[in-house]
Design a protein around this nucleic acid. Structure first.
Lengths: 148, 148
DNA sequence: GTGATTGCAAACCTTTTGCACGCCA
DNA sequence: TGGCGTGCAAAAGGTTTGCAATCAC
C-alpha cells in the first residue's frame, strides 16, 4: 500500500506548503518517524524515538507538532480511556480492539464495518466525519494464564 | 426502562454485598447521583453535584469510587480524546457521536449496530466484552454559524 | 475487632502556556 | 524582514498514592 519513501515525504511537504505550515527539521523528523507506523504511540514514545536521531528536540515540540499534525489531518488522535493521549499515523479506515488489561490496541480492517450506514436521526443533527467500531476486551497475551 | 427508585438502589446494595464492597454513605450518595444519568460526567462534575448534598466528601473519594464502580462494572469509562476521563452510568448498549468542537457526546441506540458480528480474525485472539460504534464529527450547535 | 474506606496532603505525570531567540519563507 | 516555530521554564490540570483516623461489617 503505502511505502516509507520519498513519495510520502513529498506529499507531506506539498501539503504543508498548501496549508502554510513551515517545514522545520523537527516536523520533517517527526513525519519520518511516524510514516508507516502501525501502532498508536504516545507523545512520550514518539519523543523517545525521535531524540535518538535528533537529540536537541524537546518534548514540548513533539507535543505541539503532534497536535498540529492532528489538527491538519495528517494523523489521528485515537480514542482512549484516561491514559495518555495516543496518536495514529494510519489514516486508512480501520477499527480498534482495546485490551482492558494491558491497553494494547489491535487494528483491524472490516468492509462490513466500513459500509455501516449512519442512522438518519444522527445525520439530521450531526455531520459525521469519521466512523469506527471500537471493541473492548482481553487480548491473547493477557488471557494467557502463563503471563501474569 | 430504568427508574430512579429503590429498586435500583436495592440491586446496587445487593451487588455491593455480593462483591464484598462496603456500603458507605459516600458510595450510596454517588450511586444516587449517577442513577438515571444519561450524560457522561467527569469526576469533577460528579463531585460538584455531590457536594451539594454531601459537603464533606472529597474529590479523591469521588475519583476512587468512580474507579471502583467502573472496575466492578456498575458504570463504564467512555472513550475520549485526551480530555479528562468521562464516566457513563448507562450500561445499556448504545453508541456514541463525539463532537470534535465542543466535546459533547450524543448517545444513540441502533439495533443494526448492536447486532454487528465480530470478525473471526478477532475472536480468535481477543475476547470481546463490549462493542460500540463511535462517530466523530460536528454537532448541530457547533455547526450553527450563529454560535461562535 | 479488624480490615476496608475516607479525607487530607503530597506526589506524579502529562499537557499547555508565556516568552525570548532563531529560523523558514 | 516578518512572523511562525522552537526550547526552556513554569503553570496548570487531573489522577494517584501514602498515611492516620474512622467506619462498616
Amino acid at each position: 500500500m503505502h511505502n516509507k519513501s520519498e513519495s510520502g515525504l513529498q506529499s507531506f511537504i506539498e501539503r504543508c506548503r498548501r496549508y502554510g505550515l513551515k517545514l522545520t527539521p523537527q516536523r520533517i523528523a517527526l513525519y519520518t518517524i511516524l510514516d508507516g507506523v502501525k501502532t498508536h504511540p504516545t507523545a512520550k514514545e514518539v519523543y523517545d524515538e525521535i531524540v535518538k536521531e535528533y537529540p536537541h528536540i524537546s518534548i514540548d515540540t513533539v507535543n505541539r507538532t503532534l497536535n498540529t499534525l492532528a489538527e491538519y489531518g495528517f494523523i489521528d488522535v485515537v480514542e482512549g480511556y484516561g491514559e495518555p493521549k495516543r496518536f495514529d499515523p494510519d489514516r486508512e479506515s480501520h477499527h480498534h480492539a482495546h485490551c482492558i488489561i494491558c491497553g494494547t490496541i489491535i487494528d483491524f480492517q472490516n468492509n462490513r464495518y466500513d459500509e455501516l450506514e449512519i442512522p438518519k436521526e444522527i445525520t439530521r443533527k450531526f455531520s459525521v466525519l469519521h466512523k469506527r467500531v471500537v471493541l473492548n476486551g482481553i487480548c491473547g497475551d493477557c488471557d494467557n494464564p502463563r503471563k501474569s
